[in-house]
Design a protein around this nucleic acid. Structure first.
Lengths: 265, 265
DNA sequence: CGTTCAATGTCGGAG
DNA sequence: CTCCGACGTTGAACG
């Protein structure tokens, strides 16, 4: 390893030979660096599904946590990937398909393909990227002490109602959050001004039929569990509701309250 | 623009001044190149939610289609992002917060922060990345002619059953796919050996309670629609089913058939 | 546009 | 590990 690799956080090779690329990438893996490779490659995946991507130019990123990402020029999502926790390896492959290790025979194998493999178990998944032309290799030493602070989530909506239960309806009293039922945990469990049990399901944005089904399951489970004579009220809280979901709510005798996760500014 | 920018597909600056970085990034946007920036930055997002990320080292990618991705050293998902279709801009900001355009005053503003903004409407969303230290800027000209070929999807599972309906059960006859109901489209609609209507819901992998709710909605909708006297059979097809979902199936009188999206090899 | 549903969804938390 | 539900889910297909 040269001194520059130790002293700088970024190391970049332009148009490296396959062997030079292999060496730098392998050192990057060892150092727990973030490694990027840009060039012309094919990609094969086999695991939860199976895919193949023919030759094209792509940007590949390997993270120190074991994640791998293959990006094309379009799309927010990578065209292929591997989740964190995978093991990465890099090696050269001869034209006949045999693998060349670092201890490759004298000739540096300029005509060889650079292969990068990412493996995982449970479930078994394999990603193989084969570069026929490497235009850039970079390794980055990353230090990121900060956590993302996010607001406007379902947790914010819950806090908002617990802080001011009248936002649901006057006289509403929360009794528990995440109350367990055989069908799962109810977001907010409480009672109304008349003492009737109320089950509240929260959604941070416009809801479809799935949320109604979820709410209905909670109520069914509770009515069986509590042998309730008086029907339990079910209230869906969200900014808005689709037409289909609205009809399902009416059919099942459930209610809807419009509320945003954060107060309007 | 120098000749190298036109002739090479990859252009990289190491430890550039903010103004040099701004110029190269702006040129990259104009060329519809894929642009990456690595350095120490803060990130602010406001739109469907609100988030802030304090200073740390991150890898940022801007794609020609308008997507933006901010990656830390961990996670498959970017810590912040913007979907395709956004407008990107890059500019320098003085310490007082005022923006400096390309026509900035004579002093090249070495102490200034490099800002990159990505904007979108419907919904209104803003991403602002402020770099206090830029270690690398790269622009890549990407050509990728290939499409991903993927197998093992729900479509494969459907094709498998349509090709060999007996995989569902002997005597099953598919009559329609994507048959519309008030609750959405049924994956496969058919009848069994006794002429009873069968609704089939397909899932490419192990299913939980949500899939049971989906199947139940279809059956309820069809029974109302057809005023069916004889009950409609509902069959969930998936590789396997969770315990909770199994109980829900039994409770609702629905059936389960174990089947993989592709034949075992 | 809005609605619906699949996805190699990913991710985090609980059991 | 599995199960479960949220997510700034993303993405595509369709009305």
């Amino acid at each position: 390893m040269t001194s520059s690799e130790q002293e700088t956080q970024v190391l970049t090779l332009q148009e490296p030979t396959p062997e030079a690329a292999r060496e730098t990438i392998a050192a990057g893996f060892d150092r727990e660096a973030l490694v990027t490779v840009f060039g012309r490659c094919t990609v094969d995946y086999d695991g939860r599904a199976t895919s193949r991507l023919e030759a094209g130019e792509r940007h590949v990123m390997f993270k120190p946590d074991g994640a791998a990402l293959v990006h094309t020029d379009e799309g927010q999502q990578p065209v292929n990937w591997q989740p964190p926790g995978c093991d990465h390896e890099v090696f050269l492959e001869d034209e006949d398909g045999s693998e060349d290790g670092a201890e490759a025979s004298g000739d540096a194998g300029d005509g060889n393909a650079l292969c990068m493999r990412s493996l995982r178990s449970t479930p078994e998944e394999r990603l193989l990227i084969t570069f026929e032309h490497i235009m850039q290799v970079s390794t980055f030493t990353v230090t990121d002490p900060s956590e993302l602070s996010l607001s406007g989530t379902e947790a914010d909506l819950k806090a908002r109602i617990l802080d001011e239960p009248a936002l649901l309806e006057p006289g509403f009293t929360p009794l528990a959050t995440e109350r367990e039922t055989p069908a799962g945990a109810v977001d907010i469990y409480g009672e109304d001004a008349d003492g009737r049990t109320v089950v509240v399901e929260l959604k941070r944005r416009r809801v479809g039929p799935d949320a109604v089904g979820q709410l209905r399951r909670y109520i069914d489970a509770l009515e069986r569990d509590l042998h309730a004579d008086a029907a339990i009220r079910g209230v869906l809280v969200a900014p808005s509701v689709t037409e289909r979901a609205k009809r399902l709510l009416e059919r099942d005798g459930l209610e809807f309250v419009a509320l945003e996760p954060t107060a309007e500014s």
